[in-house]
Write a protein that binds this DNA or RNA. Structure first.
Lengths: 149, 149
DNA sequence: CCCAAAAAGATTGTGTACAATTTAATTGTG
DNA sequence: CACAATTAAATTGTACACAATCTTTTTGGG
């Protein structure tokens, strides 16, 4: 086992946090050419992913799944509505709750995006890293952090 | 080997990109209580890490190490200078280049932060994940992405 | 039933990120 | 040497991300 000495802890290249930060941004960058033609940002994209994974979903539940709050989601959802990809309407049983659903145009977009993202997955998969295992490890770390807070 | 079917690719929970995005934000959140008392943001923190790792460094080289451009770095560096943690001055041999160095106050801050971040590392290390290996895998992925662009 | 507390979004303000453009300095080529 | 091309930062504009606050609606205890 390699131990990082006290002295070296504060080196950028020894920081797991920075590796995560950097790779996250680079992966988001990979999505840009796929999303741009549809006028989508990455945040809009993952928001749509979450919406597609739920028949009907509240902003609060979306925020929980996406690790985002209403301050971020409200403008994103308004934009997606403006683009015609989602519907926003209050729950008639509880007017505090805003329910979000996908539209027909949103469903069509989902079909179109499947091809591009499959291509992206292949681009990475040709290489030697086990992405499935990597994702499991990252999700494990995520769980530990969330359970400890 | 588990294969994700075409149909399930566009599920949020199957997206490696989202796991990276989420865990990166959560790890940054962990740093907040450590950085806040010093009036530092996470971006300022990693920028300082990079500066501490170099005697003298240009904005361009900082950007390369941090995966950030001058649009992000210029205001961050100005703030760090205002707080007294770094010096900014043009290279007398080439006035286009801005050279950044740490100050005595910056070096003192480094000492103070070492304790907090060691604590943070321990908080995660008690658990079952091999963070060293995880970092290696993430850095491997980062390398592949960068080499392919 | 009434009203304080809680809950869900929306809003506001600050600080990134990053693309695109601008400015100033330097380099390379005729 | 002159000047176009290149380079390094800074600036501008847009879109998050998140803390803090505000508004509206609902809930729960007396």
């Amino acid at each position: 086992m390699i131990v990082v000495s006290e002295k070296d802890i504060l080196l950028l290249e020894n920081q797991l946090c920075f590796s995560l930060y950097a790779v996250s941004k680079e992966v988001i960058r990979l999505y840009k050419p796929i999303l741009d033609p549809h006028g989508l940002t990455y945040t809009q994209y993952i928001t749509l992913l979450a919406i597609w994974g739920n028949d009907t979903v509240s902003v609060k539940e979306l925020g929980k799944q996406l690790h985002l709050d209403s301050g971020t989601l409200t403008p994103v959802l308004k934009k997606l509505e403006l683009q015609g990809y989602v519907n926003r309407q209050r729950d008639y049983k509880d007017e505090r709750i805003l329910l979000v659903t996908t539209t027909e145009k949103g469903r069509e977009l989902k079909e179109k995006l499947a091809a591009g993202t499959t291509h992206l997955a292949c681009l990475l998969q040709v290489n030697s890293i086990d992405l499935q295992q990597l994702k499991k490890d990252i999700d494990g770390l995520l769980r530990i952090i969330i359970d400890n807070r």
